[in-house]
Design a protein around this nucleic acid. Structure first.
Lengths: 205, 205
DNA sequence: CGAGCGATTGAACCAGGTCAAACGGGGTGG
DNA sequence: CCACCCCGTTTGACCTGGTTCAATCGCTCG
């Protein structure tokens, strides 16, 4: 057990039915550690995860009174996020036990948390980085050699990244200039058009 | 049926097992409408919800291949978000049917989506508004007359709102000056201290 | 007491927002 | 077929809210 989950240790030491208490700033569990899922009965918990690429942990979500913490261990066996007490908080074990066949919902829950992290990341960092991340996210999951992305209207891209239409347009122009983005047909601009994407150049920008 | 869900209409018109297709920009369902849950089998869906306060709809999340859309109707009977096709996409009915007693997970899923919307909102708009929203969110749900909030360290508030520590500090100073925030004990500053909050003045700032 | 850390405050700078103008394509009506 | 309009996009010029850099303060702990 390398980075042992604190929640795990405490759980082993106390009756399972007793709530766990954490003070502000206290680590609840580490990403990658093993442990059990919990429900927040008081306070607020902060999640962090490693941004794709560098190994840095960054903010990925919140869990508040009634929310679950670490439900993904029921799927993956390990915590996907680091959890920290944002305010003093109390956790209770969840759900006691699991009926089999609740798989689908559980999977959905894990995906939902993943999506939160993605969306939060889309609103972090500089404009160019945000737009690149969004494009990356819009690439079809089945990655075939000539990568094509169907970009939504600038208006959408702006609202999702919390930038303005003008800024998004400038970033796209920049990417086009770099060759990271090529409109499929040589029409004006690329807003709302499918276009060819170079992952490498995108990452470099 | 006022703002009828498009998904509902289409569903009534086709075999239940057939996937629904939407073009870019097409409305999938309206917030508040009735309908069924779906799973995204292709493309990306955008969620919008009305920010607390004004009736404006604003970006609240994404659903990508494999994610669920509108799972909350199984709980609340109505869609909680407006869903729009961000890229051309395909939806399939989900989950076919529901075993009873999957309530807990379903509730968790709905909360998770709610949390995503909250977190996204914390990274929208001007600095003062973000900090105010965060403080509001940190107020204990059981609202008793002298509202006390236990504020996390500035470092956390900064990372959550995608601002800098300095900016958050300035906003808090501003709120203190306005009387929207009062340190419980008259110590220096209010970072990481519990303090009294005035909802009205907070909203005004 | 001194070191260290979080918070605060000031000053200068700049990334992105705002405002404005122009363009291109698609649709509509004459 | 053309004239016109509408809407999404692009680009430039300017402005500002927030970041950056730096100095100071206060508390806590060794």
């Amino acid at each position: 057990m390398l980075p042992t989950a604190i929640a795990t240790e405490q759980a082993a030491a106390v009756t399972l039915s007793a709530p766990l208490c954490f003070e502000r700033g206290q680590r609840i569990h580490e990403a990658g550690a093993m442990g059990f899922p919990w429900r927040v009965s008081q306070g607020v918990v902060r999640f962090d995860t490693t941004e794709a690429g560098n190994g840095e942990l960054s903010f990925a979500g919140l869990a508040m009174e009634g929310d679950l913490v670490g439900a993904e261990v029921l799927m993956f066996g390990r915590f996907a996020y680091r959890a920290t007490a944002l305010t003093a908080c109390q956790l209770v074990p969840w759900p006691g036990h699991l009926d089999k066949d609740e798989d689908k919902l559980l999977r959905a829950l894990a995906r939902s948390d993943q999506r939160t992290a993605d969306v939060v990341a889309l609103r972090s960092g500089q404009a160019m980085a945000r737009v690149c991340r969004l494009i990356e996210l819009l690439l079809p999951p089945s990655a075939t050699a000539p990568l094509k992305a169907e970009l939504p209207p600038l208006r959408d891209m702006a609202e999702i990244t919390a930038l303005t239409i003008e800024t998004v347009s400038r970033m796209l122009s920049g990417l086009r200039r770099l060759g990271a983005l090529e409109p499929e047909q040589e029409r004006r601009g690329n807003g709302g058009k499918t276009c060819l994407v170079s992952r490498e150049l995108l990452a470099a920008a």
